[in-house]
């Protein structure tokens, strides 16, 4: 079985989806490690599950939460851990809308 290979472009695409960035040195060590991991998970890709069905864990509509309001947290508690707040809101540098 051939080993799944991964290209730099592929890794960059994944990094983009992950909101992560890597230096070139990090990438150099990352790729072979990642290929080894892919080799491990490829056992699943290549296994036989027949016409396997996925059984969703489920519950009945009637057992769902009733539509009742409960108290929210105070604003200052909500914002407590934020690196930056203004006017009762979380704050980031101005974005173009």
């Amino acid at each position: 079985m051939s080993k799944t290979k991964i290209t730099i472009e592929e890794v960059k695409r994944l990094a983009d989806l992950s909101a992560l960035e890597f230096t070139d040195e990090e990438l150099a060590s990352f790729i072979p490690e990642f290929e080894n991991i892919l080799h491990l998970v490829d056992e699943v890709k290549n296994c036989d599950v027949g016409d396997g069905q996925i059984d969703y864990p489920k519950h009945l509509l009637c057992s769902l939460r009733d539509d009742q309001v409960k108290e929210s947290l105070p604003q200052e508690e909500i914002l407590k851990n934020s690196p930056k707040t203004k006017k009762g809101s979380f704050c980031v540098p101005k974005m173009l809308d």
Binding site: G52, Q53, I54, D55
Partner: peptide, 15 residues
């Protein structure tokens, strides 16, 4: 489909 969905099916098979 090749990975995640397959893994979920495999999980069911293991169960």
């Amino acid at each position: 489909d090749a990975y995640y969905n397959k893994a979920k099916k495999l999980q069911q098979k293991l169960k």
